[in-house]
Amino acid sequence: CPQSGYTVAVMNVGAPAAGMNAAVRATVRIGLIHGHRMLAVHDGFEGLAFGMVEEIGWNAVGSWTGLGGSKLGTKRTLPKKYFEEISANISKFGIHALIIVGGFEAFTGGLELVEGRARFEELCIPLCIVPATVSNNVPGSDFSIGADTALNTITTTCDLIKQSAAGTKRRVFIIETMGGFCGYLATMAGLAAGADAAYIFEEPFSSRDLQANVDHLTEKMKTTVKRGLVLRNERCNENYTTDFIYNLYSEEGKGVFDCRKNVLGHMQQGGSPTPFDRNFGTKMGAKAVAWITGKIRECSRHGRIFANTADSACLLGMRKRSLVFQPIAELRQQTDFEHRIPKEQWWLRLRPILKILAKYNIELDTSETAHLEHLTRKVLVPEATL
């Protein structure tokens, strides 16, 4: 390939997520096809500060598609305290653009880099963030790389756990999922595994709600129903802990059913990525490089790169089946930083279905005006060209 004379660095930030490696592989290979010199940064922003940077070639990322975790190494450290070192290394390694594949820290870290542009000229380079986290809590994207794999793990585990209640025993399982404050995993796994309740932070619940759930389940258990499944997001409520809910169900269900609890833990971050996450990561990686190449040309003046506009630091997100680039500065307003979640989340509209399938007597409004519009009305979106 004809050399472009530009150097693009790729890194992982945040917690590991299945599909990160597929995204890095696509980024490196498409970057090389575009004629760029590609650099791999190990261990996130810390690695960029301490110079853990090396050139990465075509063969170095071979067979990365099916690998879980993060081959580059990833850390949650934010860049603010390392601005001097990071700026020095951007100069030292001649980095012209940066692609960050990561979770919420990649987003907040990107915002910090943009803020640092006023003080450090070296940070005035095009920047692209590709959301990759099991929690699916990055603003600007309906999906993040790794969430599908985690969801598969949880659903499969719920299926396995439910089987242990087969036979004559009536049993209820309380299962705790990951996701921080974001209830995506608990809600979607609940929908997929047929849960009786899914407790999440976004939908506050009181002791009366818990009591109603227990009563409802107890009534169901008195019929032919043999097992119950209750999911709880890890940070849905600091007082109604998994132990509390387990104790409540155990006490109230005496004589009708017995109770078991399970905290799934870090198995949700591991495993090899599902085909969806592999392909999603590959598409996002390829798209990010194409955008970066255009931005480098746009921001190039006499062989030097200077990017300090809002649209030179973007997050690539999936919105209603289209892949779109959004300036990260604009996404700030859409974010609840205290709880590390977007202010609006599309999947919350699916929660009424969860209740109906658990045999609660509630009305489901699927009219055109209802919240479920994205399910009932198919809007034709021009397919994003890769």
Rank of each mutant, 00 (worst) to 15 (best):
V53S: 07
H96F: 00
L78Q: 15
G47D: 06
V53L: 08
K81H: 05
D43H: 14
T74F: 06
G57N: 08
E46G: 08
E85Q: 15
I86V: 15
G47S: 12
G69P: 06
D43Q: 14
K92L: 10
N59W: 01
G68W: 05
I86W: 10
L98P: 11
S70M: 07
G57Y: 05
A49N: 12
K71D: 00
L98K: 12
F45C: 03
A88K: 10
S87I: 01
G73S: 10
G94C: 06
L72M: 11
W58G: 01
F83H: 14
K71Y: 04
K81S: 11
V53T: 14
K80P: 00
L67D: 00
A97M: 05
G51L: 04
I86Q: 11
E54V: 06
A97R: 02
A60F: 02
E55A: 06
E54A: 13
I95T: 06
I90C: 07
N59V: 06
K81P: 14
T65R: 15
G68S: 02
M52E: 12
G66M: 06
I56E: 02
I95R: 07
F83I: 10
T77C: 09
F45K: 07
K80G: 09
S70I: 01
P79Y: 00
W58R: 13
S70C: 12
N89W: 02
E85W: 05
L78P: 00
L78Y: 00
E54Y: 07
I95W: 03
G44P: 11
W58M: 15
K80M: 07
T74K: 07
T74H: 10
E84W: 09
G47E: 07
F45I: 10
T65L: 13
E84D: 15
G68N: 03
H96S: 11
F45A: 04
G47T: 12
E54F: 05
G47Q: 12
E46D: 09
G94S: 12
S87P: 08
G62M: 04
G62R: 13
S63P: 02
S87N: 04
M52S: 14
F83V: 08
K92I: 01
L48Q: 05
G44L: 09
V53G: 05
G57P: 00
H96N: 15
L78G: 04
I90M: 09
P79S: 01
I95L: 05
T77F: 04
L72N: 05
I56H: 12
S70A: 15
E55W: 03
I95F: 03
I56G: 09
G94I: 08
S70N: 03
F93Y: 15
K81E: 13
E85H: 14
S91V: 13
A88W: 03
H96V: 01
K92E: 10
E46Y: 14
M52D: 13
L98Y: 10
A88I: 01
D43E: 14
I95H: 02
G73M: 06
G66D: 11
I90V: 15
W58H: 14
I86N: 10
G57S: 07
T74V: 13
K92W: 01
G44Q: 11
G69H: 03
E46M: 10
H96M: 00
F50G: 03
V53Q: 06
P79W: 01
F83A: 15
A49K: 12
L67N: 04
D43G: 08
G66C: 06
M52K: 15
S87C: 11
K71F: 02
E85M: 12
N89Q: 14
N59F: 06
E54W: 03
S87E: 02
K92Y: 11
I86A: 08
